[in-house]
Nucleic acid binder design. Structure first.
Length: 946
RNA sequence: GGGCAUUUAGCUCAGUUGGUCUAGAGCGAUCGCCUCACACGCGAUAGGUCACAGGUUCAAAUCCUGUAAUGCCCACCA
């Protein structure tokens, strides 16, 4: 595009075509590519890549077969904004994209599909099944990418990584072997969380505890060899009756006198007719239930511990699908809940049920499948977490990694100091297979491949058959390698040298344990000894951490405050919103609504604000282009007072960036010398905004950024400055320049509309991109408090005049006579200097600016509005009806009451000796001024009311 | 049971280290305008004892304590 044909510009911004055009252009220009300096010594704008520090964001890889929801839209908008922002700051910005194979989630989906065909994964066998999953994955994986593009996201697509890629799998195996060789991975028989649905172990983090209504059952276990003075039964309480089949003891507290004499005796386990001992263990709470606990080591983690202490057998009574197994006697083959019912019936018949009470307790459910998790005894692989957690906590405590908001450090610290070993084996087929091989007698050999395992076996003196572990690793065991495995770890690649450690990780706080904490541990552990860019080896923590800043964004809820979820169907598809409102609108809205770490209630209509804002910017540009044409028509060879060559380039020579070294281009709002007060004011506001925006960006307060820009662009620039430009054509060049800066400032947030308009404004060819331009840096010298204050007083006069017009029910086009009376000569001079603006914006047929000391104006002829204590604006009234006059009087009366009240409380404060003696001087002076101003206002109002 | 948050206009939320806070914005409501960039707009108006109770201070929406409500996270009480 050479130039937007202004006349044909539609009245409203239509995003669709613009988005399509620019996204493909960005890709064609390689905008998203992050390169090593050696590969491209210069970037397309001529900047020396060698000088550019990297800025790296690793995208939390979405589930490969998933669909992006609003949370993803927000998260990716945040990341894309920061990537674009840093690219404009002159960084080599690298956004690492990819998807996660999501073991359980994906496998479950494919199994569900098979089920519809009446098949199970076992019908296919492992190899065929995994093939099916790959097929499914390939059919669905484009979807995420399409969605990200629709959101305007620009990661470096060349680097797209899938966690099951070959190179990535190599990293997973390497990590496993290294940790194992270091003694940090072990295999053990433990009680783990078993998901009967997935037929797999789960980590503690994958279990969600929910308060669940259930029953507490009291059973009678007969005492064997009972003497006459002894009770017939010991009564135990349980919430899970079916586990009694695996009971191996009953425990009481050693201090409990009720039972102390009986400890060591035998009880008869009903239904199973097994004798089990009564033991004493500190764990038992005397107060709870009957003070007697049945012990089932194979089905409860506490019982497991007790079992170890007392050397009890472990009887597993369930199979992997939570059906009773051969150890369950007559109940074999029954589902756990069916067995529960039957056991209750049978015990009832035997008269062994004491009572059943309603009971609510915390029960674990599978995060994915939603079914009740079964504590289950099995052989699994674990990672020893304590040694990994300690340094990972330290780097956060030491401030090498910053959390935003900071308070998440509490949660992090709590988890890291109470960390438990991580169960990483999953009985799934979809995932990276555990690199362990078993000998015929259960010997274990871990190796990077079968060859290495064989070699290790041989050197251990074993040369029999080797069989690889059937299990795969937890998906998160691959995810925690993401920040470096994507760069080719364990190899010492150039990418890894240059782009690690990264900078920003943005995520919802719900995966702080799953992912964030483990990435920090993984980074510290696995990049030790890798090469730094300067060839030294990574030993210092700051060279090993995966990122420096973690941004915990808010969770998006629906308008009832519920978490958005697929099952509730309350999450709008971000793509639908994009289609309806435009990408920029959705991005802006999400960021505008996203207070750091605070949940946000989101309704689709919120996007209207973003759409309207995009439209506002679009129309402001349309207007400025029009004004520029007008200006150029009357100034064919504009001569500017200073050496503002840059401005000329914008105005006259459209492609001002072509062939220029970037260093010469000033990036603040500095080029135009301001002539009028309004010019000084807008320059000051623009630079102040630029300063605050940068501050907020860098502090990861992104919704502050959006608010600053929204207010500045809409209120200051459009509502005020452009209105003034209509009256001061000589300000047109500055208006153009400010607008150009505005587009650059908001570009990271609203990339499409700004790119389109920037090209219209500058006439740059399509290959010259705003996203490669410099970000606006504030020129502090242009921040002018005095000018801002003066202009604000002009605004106040205008607002007062508007109010008077509105009260007088004047048609906006109708002119009126105004008198402005001011107390100080300075203010009079100020008003006089802005006479043109005042007259025109107020639509004054005449405007008198005079001193207050002039004779009173009759309230009959004029109504007025106060300017604080600095003066008064009068409007000449048409003949007022009685009704109007009364209304006006009421309004003034109300105002008088309000000010009187404030006057009274303030004067009480000022006459209070405690205040005057202790408050700092400047506050007292200020308050006295305020009081004086109230007094003046009261007098004026009194006079007006009559 | 422990921890972390939240409670400000009808709704959704801002309000940095206590004093320009005489508490703001967007939406909604009301009134007036198709003013030659924008009706996805312009101008104006109404609406708040800043959850409650104490305390610190010359001064509290802001700091402290307690209470209540709501949300989230963690925790093996059968």
């Amino acid at each position: 595009m050479s130039e937007i044909p202004k006349q044909e510009l539609a009245k409203a911004y239509a995003p669709q075509d613009v988005e399509k055009k620019w996204y493909s252009n960005w890709e064609a220009c390689g905008l998203f590519y992050a390169n090593r300096p050696v590969d491209t010594p210069q970037d397309p704008t001529g900047r020396r890549a060698l000088d550019k520090p990297p800025f790296v964001v690793c995208m939390p890889p979405p589930n490969v077969t998933g669909i992006l929801h609003m949370g993803h839209a927000l998260n990716n908008a945040i990341q894309d904004t920061y990537i674009r922002y840093h690219r404009m700051l002159g960084h080599e910005a690298l956004w690492m994209p990819g998807t996660d194979h999501a073991g359980i989630a994906t496998q479950t989906k494919v199994e569900k599909k098979l089920k519809e065909e009446g098949k199970t994964r076992y019908d296919l066998g492992r190899e065929k099944f995994v093939e099916e999953v790959w097929k499914w994955k390939n059919e669905h994986s484009d979807f995420i990418e399409t969605q990200l593009r629709a959101l305007g996201c620009g990661p470096d697509w060349r680097r797209f990584t899938f966690t099951m890629d070959e190179k990535y799998e190599k990293a997973v195996v390497e990590a496993f072997v290294r940790l194992h060789d270091k003694g940090l991975i072990y295999r053990g028989k433990r009680i783990i969380n078993w998901s009967p649905l997935a037929q797999s172990a789960l980590s503690d983090e994958e279990v969600i505890h929910k308060e669940t209504k259930g029953k507490l059952h009291y059973f009678r276990y007969p005492l064997v060899g009972r003497k006459s003075d002894e009770p017939e039964f010991i009564i135990i309480a349980t919430t899970r009756p079916e586990t009694m089949l695996g009971d191996v003891a009953v425990a009481v507290n050693p201090q409990d006198e009720r039972y102390s004499k009986l400890v060591g005796r035998k009880l008869r386990l009903p239904l199973m007719n097994r004798e089990i001992p009564l033991i004493a263990d500190e764990y038992v709470d005397k107060e709870f239930g009957t003070g007697c606990v049945k012990i089932t080591p194979a089905h409860d983690p506490n019982d497991f511990e007790i079992g170890l202490r007392h050397n009890l057998p472990q009887i597993n009574v369930m199979d992997t699908s939570a059906h009773i197994n051969e150890n369950g006697g007559a109940y074999q083959g029954l589902d756990r809940y069916v067995a529960r019912k039957k056991i209750l019936v049978d015990l009832e018949e035997l008269g062994l049920i004491e009572k059943i009470e309603d009971y609510t307790n915390s029960v674990g459910y599978s995060e994915r499948g939603g079914e009740m998790v079964e504590p289950y005894l099995s052989d699994q692989w674990f990672v020893k977490m304590k040694p990994l957690a300690e340094p990972a906590l330290q780097v956060v405590e030491d401030g090498l990694i910053h959390f935003h908001p900071e308070r998440w450090i509490n949660t992090y610290r709590h988890w890291m100091t109470n960390i438990r070993d991580w169960c990483i084996s999953r009985q799934l087929w979809w995932g990276q297979r555990i690199p362990a091989w078993y000998g015929e007698n259960g010997e274990i050999f871990v190796g990077r491949d079968e060859g290495e395992a064989r070699a290790r076996a041989n050197s251990a003196g074993y040369d029999g058959e080797l069989k690889q572990d059937e299990d795969v690793v937890d998906t998160w065991f691959s995810s925690w390698l993401w920040p470096f495995a994507t760069f080719g770890w364990p190899d010492n690649t150039d990418d890894l040298k240059i782009f690690y450690p990264g900078n920003l990780l943005s995520t919802a706080p719900d995966i702080i344990f799953f992912w964030v904490a483990r990435m920090i541990m993984g980074g510290i552990e696995f990049t030790q000894g890798m090469e730094n860019p300067d060839g030294t080896l990574r030993e210092k923590m700051e060279d090993r951490i995966p990122f420096t800043d973690v941004y915990f964004h808010n969770i998006i809820r629906d308008q009832q405050g519920r978490k958005m979820s697929k099952s509730l169907g309350n999450s709008p598809d971000p793509i639908d919103l994009v289609k309806k409102y435009g990408t920029d609108a959705v991005r802006f809205t999400l960021l505008y609504l996203a207070p750091l770490g605070q949940d946000v209630r989101f309704g689709e209509e919120n996007c209207e604000q973003g759409r309207n804002f995009a439209n506002k910017i679009y129309n402001a540009t349309r207007f400025v282009l029009m004004k520029r044409d007008e200006y150029q028509a009357t100034h064919p060879e504009p001569k500017f007072e200073s050496e503002d060559t840059e401005y000329k380039k914008i105005l006259i020579s459209p492609s001002h960036l072509q062939g220029e070294g970037r260093g010469e281009v000033p990036s603040g709002f500095t080029m135009r010398p301001a002539s009028t007060l309004a010019d000084k004011w807008i320059l000051s506001r623009a630079n102040r905004t630029a300063r605050e925006v940068k501050k907020s960006f860098d502090a990861y307060l992104i919704n502050d950024v959006t608010k600053l820009l929204y207010d500045f662009i809409w209120k200051d620039y459009c509502d005020w400055y452009l209105e003034i430009v209509k009256l001061q054509p000589e300000s047109t060049p500055l208006a153009v320049e400010i607008l150009e800066g505005i587009l650059r400032m908001i570009h990271p947030i609203m990339p499409f509309v700004t790119e389109e308009l920037w090209h219209g404004l500058t006439g740059n060819p399509e290959s010259v991109l705003i996203g490669r331009d410099d970000y606006i840096t504030a020129d502090e010298g242009k921040i002018d408090d005095a000018a801002e204050e003066e202009f604000e007083f002009i605004q106040k006069m205008i607002e007062a005049a508007r109010l008077l017009r509105s009260n007088a029910k004047l048609n906006p086009s109708k002119q009126a006579e105004f008198i402005i009376r001011l107390k100080s000569n300075d203010d009079m001079r100020l008003a006089e200097s802005s006479r043109n603006i005042l007259e025109n914006i107020c639509k004054a047929s005449s405007l008198v600016i005079e001193s207050e000391s002039t004779t009173e104006l009759s309230a009959k002829d004029y109504s007025s509005e106060l300017l604080g204590g600095r003066g008064q604006v009068f409007i000449k009234q048409e003949a007022q009806s009685q009704e109007e006059a009364t209304k006006e009087k009421e309004r003034l009366q109300k105002e008088l009451e309000r000010i009187t009240k404030q006057y009274q409380s303030l004067s009480a404060k000022l006459s209070d000796e405690k205040f005057t003696s202790r408050a700092p001087e400047q506050i007292i002076v200020k308050e006295k001024e305020k009081l004086e101003s109230f007094k003046v206002q009261m007098e004026k109002l009194g006079a007006q009311i009559g």
